[in-house]
Nucleic acid binder design. Structure first.
Lengths: 227, 227
DNA sequence: CCTTTTATGCGTACCTAATACGCAAAACCT
DNA sequence: AGGTTTTGCGTATTAGGTACGCATAAAAGG
């Protein structure tokens, strides 16, 4: 048998509690003391199961991802598109994952499962193993970047909505000197930034779809050039 | 004349000093006390010129970008490719910019100048204004994501080189169950992760080029479908 | 069943860092 | 010179991470 006092909690419990706090009040609210209190334990009790707060954050980062959904029928393109949107949806539910500093290559079970899922979509393609990894990495990069961008923006919106209506367009007009930045000035003049709600959910989704479309288009061309 | 005691420092000085610290010892070393000491001032003196540490970080984020280099001759594709690499190069010099939380849409002069530069590359294309913005946003997203990924990885490498040689491949083999993650297992078996130095500079560059190529390919297809 | 061993729970204490507050010094105005 | 305004900054408060060591619980050995 195993010696010593029996643990009353384990790392998974702590991770769960921490995620609950992050979901409810944001990652900033996650302090060791707060998490411990949430579970009815003392602060220092957590350190028996988690080396440091950083380690807890890493655990949270993996546990935050749901299990990847099964891919729909269709070709690799449909599947990767679906996959990318699923990633985005999951991240959207837990925006705070984007604020977690990554300390190494992914080893958590959830992250690996997602990785596997995306690679599976490319199974039937003539890409080499390394290329498949490159494509998936590129996609992850894109999705994370997009999610991060909109997340920080919508967060900024919550902090200070005034700065995010057509206010932004107006400020740009003040700052941008058409002689120094002609291309940007032209876009501003076209009214692209003068929408009432710059971070309208539909606009954001459309923007994402557009970028995703471009990327997959590129992959398709690459595959075409190979076959 | 302006009344009151003459300021001996201004926000730009503080930003410069903070950047010097970040360049030398990383963003984590940037504390108000440390920056103040670096300039020979008292900690609280800084708060006369900078509302908070967050504001200082925002200022740093803009000032960290060099002026965008003039675009080379060529079509939009050459130019955007060049631009993306220039962004990457600049960010690489100051990896800490990626750790700065963004609190709103870009308004700093340097960021806007880069934005303008990229839009200029698309000047001759038949894209609509909104689409141009979409393309550039997508590119930024991709470059930042890629930079962030490699930055965190190489940082992790510095922290613990042992975990980054073919050790990673070995660990993956332990963890990954081929029955649960067949696609990933196949890739692992192909030896993709068994390189000695997973984050070899050339490999990383190639990976970036590959993703960039895919994205631009997608843009080209989109433009083609329009003309 | 009592002692020894080992792992856990956690109280205390220390350290780092951000920043509110208020006073004193400097530079301008009349 | 006296008043006014703005800067420089010393002091103090607050929040949060974590090292350390002791008490306790549970299994193993006698």
């Amino acid at each position: 048998m195993k010696r010593g006092r029996k643990p009353t909690i384990d790392a998974a419990d702590i991770t769960r509690a921490a995620i609950a706090v992050a979901d409810a009040e944001g990652l900033a609210a996650v302090s060791m003391a707060r998490v411990a209190q949430e579970m009815g334990n003392a602060t220092m009790a957590l350190y028996r199961h988690v080396k440091s707060k950083d380690e807890l954050l890493t655990l949270m980062g993996d546990a935050a991802m749901d299990d990847p959904p099964p891919l729909p029928d269709g070709d690799w393109r449909d599947q990767l598109g679906f996959w990318a949107k699923a990633v985005l949806k999951t991240i959207r539910k837990r925006q705070w994952v984007l604020q977690i500093p990554i300390s190494g290559p992914p080893l958590g079970p959830r992250n690996l499962a997602w990785f596997d899922s995306a690679l599976g979509a490319l199974d039937g393609t003539p890409l080499e193993a390394g290329e498949k990894v490159g494509v998936v990495m590129g996609l992850i990069t894109f999705v994370h970047g997009e999610a991060r961008l909109t997340a920080t923006l919508t967060q900024g919106y919550g902090d200070n909505p005034a700065a995010f209506s057509d206010e932004y367009g107006r400020k740009l007009r003040e700052i941008v000197d058409p002689r120094k930045m002609p291309a940007l000035a032209k876009i501003i003049a076209a009214g692209v930034f003068d929408v009432d709600d710059l971070y309208d959910a539909e606009d954001v989704a459309a923007e994402f779809d557009f970028g995703l479309h471009l990327f997959l288009e590129g992959v398709a061309t690459h595959i075409g050039g190979r076959a």
